[in-house]
Amino acid sequence: MATNIPSRLTFAGAIRPGNTIEARWIVGHPMETGFRIDDAGQRILRNVITQVRVLLNGKLILELEPGTGMSANPYLTFPVTVPLTGGSVRVEWLDDAGQRGSVQQLLLLEP
């Protein structure tokens, strides 16, 4: 299912082979807990991100299952060790409503 939920992935630190940098991912997801009711008294269905997968050059390096305890617009930082030839980091997510999204950033080696 296509989605227009925005997300960003950025890196902090020098992108050099073997260097460990910090990757930061933020996604504009409402993270609806399912505990709230709307103005009409109806329960708002739970819709949180249930699965996040981080891939470095196609290889899984991190997998997590956020729950209702995480607030809206989740923000995640994790370390990435830059491979010798650079490459790319890709973050994929899936939520209760069946929406999925992904964002990819190239690890462009610094000269």
Binding site: P6, S7, R8, T10, A12, R24, I26, V27, G28, N73, Y75
Partner: peptide
């Protein structure tokens, strides 16, 4: 890069 406001600005 980290501020949630950036999501709205984008």
């Amino acid at each position: 890069n980290n501020s949630p406001i950036t999501l709205w600005l984008d």
